[in-house]
């Protein structure tokens, strides 16, 4: 009797969250799907109608699309490599006894709290500016030619900025995981005659495996939708050289007013993200039981 009441109450307590999320997820998604089959441009409201997969056809055969997909992948993989490798090294460094460890930790994680538009602007103007940027100053001081980062290496620039934002995240999580490594285990391996390299390969890396997976998957989710960094710095250019999928969809929708085409692009992004999500959900789900 009592348990049945509790169950009803529990259901009532969960209902708002579930309903709200359900509506938020389903309604726009269904609309996106619907629009993606429509001829629908805000500039030409008189041209409308059901066009089946025409939008997909145009979107997928647009050379910009292939470039955007390529850029999206390069961006994700590039940032992942930098942040995971850098994060492991940073975590190993910060796990050592250091004077002022707390302060160094604060310095390292700070970029993560900087809003994307600020970090993009700071890097664009004050670090990478071909005339007044710090990088330009370093090149000149060393007698090297200055580099116009954002025009000559637009994608690499975006990768650097984004990696700077996400390196702290990786380092912080890997450091937390590293600190949970049993001190006894480290000492036991030292007694067993393992040197640092052996300890890293056989003890530390396996211990970090789960945290690394989590970092990769969560970063991937966010990196697939990098937007502000491109919006503020290169605007996807020059040409489409630094346009990723979210930026392309934004251009289609809010600059070209092509609702149908943008929706088709949005669906492609959803499919891409879901492939990653399946893996992430499995991993987090497994940890839920532990």
């Amino acid at each position: 009797m009592a348990t049945r009441q509790t169950k009803a109450l529990a259901r009532a307590m969960m209902a708002p969250s579930i309903i709200v999320l359900f509506v938020w997820m389903i309604v726009p998604l269904v609309l996106t799907l619907w629009f993606s089959f429509q001829r629908y441009n805000l500039n030409y409201p008189e041209r409308s109608g059901f066009v089946w997969f025409r939008n997909y056809y145009f979107f997928l055969t647009d050379p910009a699309f292939l470039q955007a997909i390529g850029n999206t992948l390069i961006l994700v993989v590039g940032v992942l490599v930098i942040t995971v490798v850098g994060g492991i090294l940073l975590a190993l460094l910060l796990d050592q006894p250091i004077w002022g460890q707390g302060i160094v930790r604060l310095l390292v994680i700070a970029p993560f709290f900087v809003m994307p538009t600020v970090s993009a602007l700071v890097w664009k103007n004050m670090m990478m500016h071909p005339q007044y940027g710090i990088f330009a100053w370093i090149s000149k001081t060393l007698g090297l030619p200055t580099v116009a980062w954002l025009t000559d290496y637009p994608l690499a620039s975006v990768i650097i900025i984004t990696a700077w934002e996400w390196l702290p995240f990786a380092a912080l999580i890997l450091l937390t995981a590293l600190q949970s490594l049993d001190e006894d285990q480290k000492e036991a391996s030292e007694m067993d005659g393992a040197n640092f390299v052996n300890r890293f390969i056989y003890i530390i890396l396996p211990h970090l495996a789960r945290a690394i997976t989590v970092v990769i998957l969560i970063e991937t989710i966010f990196l697939l939708s990098v937007f502000a960094e491109i919006y503020v710095t290169t605007q996807g250019g020059p040409g489409y050289s630094s346009t990723n999928l979210p930026f392309l969809v934004y251009v289609q929708a809010l600059l070209n007013y092509d609702v149908g085409g943008a929706s088709a692009g949005g669906m492609v992004a959803v499919v891409l993200a879901n492939i990653v999500a399946i893996f992430l959900i499995r991993i987090v789900g497994r940890n839920l039981d532990a």
């Binding site: 969250s17 999320l21 969809v249 949005g266 669906m267 959803v270 993200a273």
Partner: peptide, 20 residues
């Protein structure tokens, strides 16, 4: 798990309808 999966949905996937 389902709640978590909603977080995985990319914002661009719903940008157009939300905007409209």
């Amino acid at each position: 798990m389902w709640m978590l999966s909603t977080k995985m949905m990319p914002a661009v996937g719903v940008l157009v309808p939300i905007y409209l």
